[in-house]
């Protein structure tokens, strides 16, 4: 396991995009941990000027670098605090996606036959599920919380990982090393998890990256549509507040930063994912 992590960094570190992405990703993780501690103001507190007047839609100034919202809240503080839900929801969803997707792909590909056709039929059904509408319906029916969001997003996302992993397992299970394990008395489970699984880890890592990118955008979109956790300030919810206030077009400092933050974070994830894919996917190696 540690060798895979090491190989991952070694692979990504080549080329210009990988290291850039890794550095940005590292900064975002640091922000997610430290954000609330270094935020200059309480992100939901109203701020007043010297005369005691509410700072409604104040443009950027030395006191408020990114200006304030309609309710006089500090945009920079909201931005700093909003990194955590983005990465938390993204990370947990990516993790859940890979856990389910990898296991279903492994079992489906290894056993084949009826188990395979049942699991693949199931995967196809989930493939037809419209992701955003489904998540929104689940959230609106069961209550808006980060946990529900992670579960709903995982439910619609594991399908692509499962397909990719299964295709890989189909060719791996014919390898002589699988037969070699079988004739030493290894059980099916041992073969799946000790022999085959280590070989699909690189592909699984690539799909973690793409799942992460996708989950961060989706989390923001859900926030923007107003279905995010009402008690959490996220980059998506900042845009939603601006949009719902109808004032967004008068206060670009309120709308522009969260979008840029999401764009930079997701680009970083894509850069890392593609750099790694370039190395582990033999089909792309020439490109």
């Amino acid at each position: 396991m540690p060798t895979i992590i090491l190989d991952f960094f070694r692979a990504v570190w080549r080329g210009p995009f990988g290291p850039t992405g890794l550095v940005i990703l590292g900064l975002c993780v640091a922000l997610a941990i430290l954000g609330p501690a270094i935020a200059p103001y309480d992100p939901v507190a109203r701020n007043y000027d010297a005369a005691g007047k509410l700072l409604r839609l104040a443009p950027p100034s030395w006191q408020h670098w990114l200006g304030t919202t309609l309710l006089g809240r500090d945009v920079l503080s909201q931005m700093l605090v909003g990194a955590r839900p983005a990465l938390l929801v993204g990370g947990l969803t990516a993790l859940g996606t890979v856990l389910i997707g990898v296991n279903i792909g492994l079992i489906s590909g290894y056993f084949g036959g009826r188990i395979d056709s049942f699991l693949m039929r199931l995967t196809d059904m989930f493939l037809g599920l419209p992701f955003l509408p489904f998540i929104i319906i689940v959230l609106s029916l069961t209550g808006r919380s980060l946990t529900t969001m992670v579960i709903a997003m995982t439910l619609v996302m594991w399908r692509s990982t499962a397909r990719v992993v299964r295709a890989q397992v189909l060719s791996l299970r014919e390898m002589p090393f699988v037969a070699a394990a079988r004739i030493t008395g290894a059980s099916d489970l041992a073969i799946i998890y000790r022999e085959i699984a280590p070989n699909i880890m690189p592909i699984a890592l690539v799909s973690v990256a793409f799942a992460l990118a996708w989950a961060i955008i989706t989390e923001a979109s859900i926030g923007f549509l107003g279905f995010g956790d009402p008690s959490v300030v996220s980059w998506g919810s900042i845009v939603y507040d601006a949009y719902a206030s109808q004032m967004m077009y008068r206060a670009p400092w309120w709308v522009v930063p969260p979008g840029i933050a999401i764009m930079v974070l997701v680009s970083a994830v894509y850069f890392v994912g593609r750099a790694y894919e370039q190395v582990v996917n033999p089909r792309l190696r020439t490109g």
């Binding site: 390898m175 002589p176 090393f177 037969a179 004739i183 280590p198 070989n199 880890m201």
Partner: peptide, 16 residues
């Protein structure tokens, strides 16, 4: 009963 395979490249799990 044990077996030695023709292809020593494929018979060894590359991850181990």
């Amino acid at each position: 009963v044990q077996m030695i395979f023709q292809d020593p490249y494929g018979a060894l799990n590359p991850q181990h």
